[in-house]
């Protein structure tokens, strides 16, 4: 059975439109599309709200809290708010707006949630060490031919293929 729920926009059309958005981000704001930077700004905001003293003493946070506005008042945070709204809009249009756990069928819900948290933790560390994620570091970096974007691409997907081989059973069921 093929319902609207399984229908996706043509990949090349979606990619082309996403490319235009990156151009717009650079043209208007001088920014690349990013994600992990917005998460980081939210963390800075939380730390600054709980303990401004600590925020000013931590060398990683301090440069972002010394201004006259809150650390969450950034382009990336507003962009992420937009991402939430845009995703809801699309999911509603395609009839996909509902609570589900995405996973390979042979993985239990509990296992999937634990693995998602573990994977998230790795991303939290990796993005701060590597200066961005698949959007800000790789996609937006590649858009301006920055060497860092290509190093990020090769590292994330290159090591990704190696780890995918090791952890094949998380996604592919063993066949007889």
């Amino acid at each position: 059975m093929n319902t609207k729920r399984n229908k996706y926009m043509n990949s090349y059309v979606a990619g082309f439109l996403m490319g235009l958005l990156i151009i717009a981000a650079y043209y208007f704001s001088g920014e690349g599309l990013g994600s992990s930077g917005g998460y980081r700004d939210m963390a800075f905001g939380a730390i600054n709200a709980i303990s401004p003293e600590y925020a000013h003493s931590n060398p990683f946070v301090a440069p972002h809290v010394s201004g006259d506005h809150t650390p969450t008042h950034t382009w990336l945070v507003y962009e992420l708010l937009g991402v939430i709204f845009g995703a809801i809009l699309s999911a509603a249009l395609y009839g996909r707006l509902k609570f589900v756990i995405g996973k390979a069928p042979h993985i239990s819900n509990k296992k999937r949630i634990y693995l998602a948290i573990a994977g998230g933790i790795l991303w939290g560390i990796g993005t701060q060490l590597g200066r961005g994620c698949t959007s800000g570091l790789v996609l937006s970096g590649m858009a301006v031919n920055s060497l860092s974007g290509y190093i990020g691409l090769l590292a994330i997907f290159g090591f990704g293929f190696i780890f995918a081989f090791i952890f094949k059973r998380l996604w592919i069921k063993k066949t007889n």
């Binding site: 994977g119 590597g130 994620c133 990020g152 990704g160 293929f161």
Partner: peptide
């Protein structure tokens, strides 16, 4: 750090099945 961070993210991608932008949407 981008090479090492990228490797950590690659592992996170395979284990967690998302990256930060895709997970938010």
């Amino acid at each position: 750090p981008t090479l090492i961070g990228g490797a950590i993210m690659g592992l996170g991608f395979v284990i967690g099945g998302f990256c930060p932008g895709t997970s938010l949407s």
